[in-house]
């Protein structure tokens, strides 16, 4: 049986930051820093094997056991609710899930609220708790345009600096939940590689707290 810990990292800027954290925690893998087209990188000495996947796919790789651990945003965990352990808040890639609308927006209490979002589950849960009747419009991108064109009253989306919103004359009204990158683990994989996974978690934790 493979005793290496398989780590799914999210492609992109956040992923590179995350790898740096793994490296500083003592789980480096020199081949990952070489310029090449390889997809899988391993360091048998440290017992780790890294691979890059699309950020929104990390949870799928981990839930289905192709990766033992991985790093993905809290937004993905809240939206898709994969059956995985969420072991650590890496406190990077910080942003928030928020409700935004045009500056002059006032909640039309007497009407169904039209909500455009890439995150229908998060939006539905949030408004359910408030007993607010909503109509969810699931979009796949350029969410900001929805209220401008009158497609929706509000949007539920990730807000980092708020710059994109501002440029489109939108304002974040309420924060639903803060978001950051999380270390997740496959539940079954954790049972058989607990020591190695805990060692990685401890290493990362130390780096974050320092």
């Amino acid at each position: 049986m493979d005793k290496m810990v398989n780590v799914a990292l999210p492609k992109g800027r956040l992923g590179e930051k995350v790898y740096k954290l793994f490296k500083e925690a003592g789980f480096e893998c020199p081949s990952i820093e070489e310029q090449n087209r390889k997809l899988i990188f391993e360091n048998p000495e440290k017992g780790v094997r890294y691979f890059w996947v699309k950020p929104s796919d990390v949870a799928i790789y981990v839930e289905r056991g192709a990766a033992d651990i991985g790093v993905c945003g809290k937004d993905i965990l809240l939206e898709y609710r994969p059956d995985v352990y969420e072991l650590l808040d890496l406190k990077m890639g910080k942003c928030r899930m928020a409700v935004a609308a045009k500056k002059e927006f006032r909640d039309p209490r007497g009407e169904t609220l039209r909500v455009a979002t890439k995150f229908p589950n998060i939006a539905a849960t949030y408004y359910n708790e408030k007993c607010r009747d909503i109509d969810i419009i699931k979009l796949n991108g350029s969410i900001e345009i929805a209220p401008i064109l009158g497609l929706s009253d509000v949007i539920v989306d990730i807000v980092e600096t708020g710059k994109t919103l501002l440029e489109n004359d939108l304002v974040p009204f309420e924060t639903i939940v803060p978001i950051s990158a999380r270390l997740i683990a496959n539940t079954a994989g954790y049972k058989f590689k607990q020591e190695a996974i805990e060692a990685i978690k401890k290493g990362l934790e130390k780096q974050i707290n320092d």
């Binding site: 049986m1 839930e63 289905r64 056991g65 192709a66 059956d83 496959n186 539940t187 079954a188 994989g189 049972k191 058989f192």
Partner: peptide, 8 residues
């Protein structure tokens, strides 16, 4: 859990 199977 059984080693090699990714769920309980």
């Amino acid at each position: 859990y059984i080693e090699g199977i990714p769920a309980s």
